[in-house]
Design a protein around this nucleic acid. Structure first.
Lengths: 220, 220
DNA sequence: CGCAAAAGTTTGATGAGTCAAACTCTGAAA
DNA sequence: TTTCAGAGTTTGACTCATCAAACTTTTGCG
């Protein structure tokens, strides 16, 4: 139904809306996330508005309509089920599956998607810990607090990794801080903007607070 | 590399070349197979020629270059591996997987494709009995003779089904004449243009010679 | 407040892929 | 050998998605 480009804009708008308190997305941020110029984003956003997928007014930002949000959640479901399949069934490295899923998500039909879901046993989250929306479009709000909210000596468990960069994921993997992993904060060095964390059964690793902010966790 | 449209033209040209003694494709046939007007096909064929994927001259038909054929075989490999996966792993009906694979074949990367191949145990043919090209681009020439070449009383085994129409495949499935199935010709009625065939362990079925021509078999 | 920088918009262009319709060529039948 | 139907080609137009560059609005800082 929607073209590949339209789906990418919807997904980006959904992601940006989660991150902003107003639920709105700016053109600059949207254009950057989709990988186009702001002029192109403006043009496309007008089309989305004409198709009732978004609400938009000049210089006023853009937000998804209910219809647009449903479409975005559907794309998210496709993306995350595919990622899960690539890791679980095909044994691909979780660091690379994001980009692969990015291509496949536009080509998979409802029939294949539901077969995939069945084959995987209806998983509730993907390899990065992100929730997989249900076929009806319900999505569990991802909870947890960034690793930077924890203090020296506190213990917890990784919930999800809020960054799809392959190199970062490889680092996380090597540190043992995959979703589900229990950890303990060894130290925080505010001046150096770093902290030291030990995953169960691993040596402690040092990481920048900026990196730690991408690791979302919960209290043990 | 090649766009989706280009890949579809290459695939169609490859298929048409197999069916014609000259190895050439006419614009009408090409356009029909791709699903565009002949004018569009002419335009695209010129682009393919400019990209050294095809050789073409005005009013003279079109044929793939070595490079174009390699690209076509690669698409065939993707298509057939995906079909095999959809049937074997996801348990989808073999009658519907052709159309699904048609969409996915353009979106699958080499990394995912090879993982799929490994997961499936490097199959040599797809659910319809068509050979799957190797990663290096080698493809076994599909042998066999149409069911219409057999005579009353002869026995044989189905090799492949040379038609992807879902309804026809459902009929073949119901008759027990899937690839690999042994059969015996019960009778041939040249006047009525039909024949009666019995698959092992099944009741005999009557089918038109036109249909039987699409069922490729070998002597027992 | 005033004004520059940042954000956003518009415009004119491009390339891919397509169609409809006018036109041209080829080949087989009369 | 003529002719005409069918195959093939060309042209002009359109949509989608994009960019560069000129332009406008908003915003935050001094």
């Amino acid at each position: 139904m929607a073209t590949e480009a339209v789906e990418n804009y919807l997904k980006a708008m959904y992601t940006l809306a989660r991150e902003s308190p107003t639920g709105e997305a700016g053109m600059k941020a949207l254009a950057t996330m989709v990988g186009v110029t702001t002029g192109t984003a403006t043009t496309m956003v007008k089309r989305l508005a004409a198709a009732k997928l978004a609400r938009y007014e000049r210089f006023g930002g853009v937000r998804l309509t209910t219809k647009g949000e449903a479409a975005a959640v559907d794309i998210l479901r496709r993306h995350r089920l595919i990622e899960t399949f690539l890791v679980q069934t095909l044994k691909l490295d979780w660091a690379v599956v994001h980009d692969e899923a990015e291509r496949l998500e536009h080509a998979i039909s409802p029939v294949v998607l539901e077969a995939l879901d069945r084959h995987l046993g209806h998983p509730s989250s993907d390899p990065h810990g992100d929730p997989i929306p249900s076929a009806e479009g319900r999505i569990r709000e991802p909870g947890g607090r960034p690793l930077t909210d924890f203090e020296t000596g506190q213990r917890g468990r990784v919930v999800r990794i809020a960054d799809q960069d392959a190199d970062f994921l490889k680092f996380v993997d090597a540190s043992g801080l995959r979703p589900g992993a229990p950890f303990e904060i060894r130290s925080v060095d505010a001046a150096a903007q770093t902290m030291s964390v030990r995953a169960r059964g691993r040596d402690p690793v040092a990481l920048a607070l900026a990196a730690a902010r991408k690791i979302v966790c919960e209290r043990e």
